[in-house]
Write a protein that binds this DNA or RNA. Sequence first.
DNA 1: CGCAACCTTGATTCTGATCAATAAAGGTGG
DNA 2: CCACCTTTATTGATCAGAATCAAGGTTGCG
Lengths: 245, 245
Amino acid sequence: MIKLFKQGETVQKLCSNCSLQALCMPVGLNGNEMAQLDAVIRQSRRLKKGEYLFRAGEAFTSLFAVRTGFFKTTVMSQDGRDQVTGFFMSGELLGMDGICSHTHSCHGIALEDSEVCELPFGNLEEAGERFPSLQTHFYKLMSQEIVRDQGIMLMLGNMRAEERLAAFLINLSQRLNQRGFAANDFILRMSREEIGSYLGLKLETVSRTLSKFQQEGWIKVDHKHIQLLDPEALKTLIANCSQAL
Amino acid sequence: MIKLFKQGETVQKLCSNCSLQALCMPVGLNGNEMAQLDAVIRQSRRLKKGEYLFRAGEAFTSLFAVRTGFFKTTVMSQDGRDQVTGFFMSGELLGMDGICSHTHSCHGIALEDSEVCELPFGNLEEAGERFPSLQTHFYKLMSQEIVRDQGIMLMLGNMRAEERLAAFLINLSQRLNQRGFAANDFILRMSREEIGSYLGLKLETVSRTLSKFQQEGWIKVDHKHIQLLDPEALKTLIANCSQAL
DNA sequence: CGCAACCTTGATTCTGATCAATAAAGGTGG
DNA sequence: CCACCTTTATTGATCAGAATCAAGGTTGCG
């Protein structure tokens, strides 16, 4: 892969010509308003696989929108173990947990070489005052995050290992599909251990359950390459859990 | 108990003389601004134990601040089971999950006779435009909810039954204490089953674990009356899980 | 090429769920 | 106000699902 930019180098990017606009900030601004929105974004930043976008405990100043790539967020427990609280792909927003205390409460980590837009929170607040539709949209984004978390709680509290993994695969499939990728043939960007951490399972259980799904003929597993052969079977598995993930 | 108001009867209440102001909307407004904030609140509403404040699927129009009493929120799964996603006491805000889809995604249910302030979301948005400090505070409240949810995820994903229950008791104790109640002597407003649902445990496990804590001499259990005899022991139990609840 | 990280699979253990029986509390109506 | 019934809680016995322990295999990075 040809590297056009050095690691960490920043490039000005504009919302007004971003293809993710519809996912990220679908607020129906006119041309002039959109130009003002461009001023919200400080810069675009590139990260290499494994690099931290922000760390728990760091001062919070900005939200980050994923432009390309893949991220996870993790919360740390004192004894060193940490739990994955979310996976983020293009058009999704990270860092909203930091607003309440001006401090990030989780780590944000790139799972592959990635690029994000930095949205300084002060700029966002200011822009929100000028554009009520932006304001409203931002409320919705935060609310969406709360609803997403509720779904995870439901999963962690009520579902069995197979149901959790099925919900995970279906959710991933749908989000990829929304972004124009194949719904039933994709590469996992995270390890079995990270999946397990997110689902409240051990990596062995994740591995075993994937193998079981393959034996059932529902999926094909080739390391990180997953094919959903019978997505309906997976959906049936989680049918008795609404808000699934 | 003497009923001063019929069920559902509404009474105008004002933020400007509410004792919960510091918990609910601590935004340092001056007298004039506070008077305008009063206009945000539509009404105070009384609910009897067991009554629904809102139902999943209902149109979202307002947030609710608990004035007195105790609430739970639950998300429904298709097969009828539901999971408790939170308990709410005075000064806490319910309903933020409804913003993103204009529809409540969970039920809000009174666990005892209670009183809430209704905050029509439209009024809030409007007031936020006029008072940036209110705006900022509202962002913080939503962010706080996200952080709270992260803690629950950590609990559901990583902690064992004893740790979960210890975290639950300590959290309850601290929140009661913040409101001027005894930290180590309180009445549970929810059933064992509701605790279990919240913690991802079965009611028998909750009961057994409480009994065990009592045998250890850490707490005294008399049905819903709980005394923390050795809160430090409980805190030690959860010491290896930071963000605990 | 070699080492480290990651994955798979098997054997065993353990935590918490399930099944079951009893007891106590709270609400209802006579 | 009391008796009854429903709901809620406790405790025991057994079971199942996932964790843990363990070994071997694969991948991919340096």
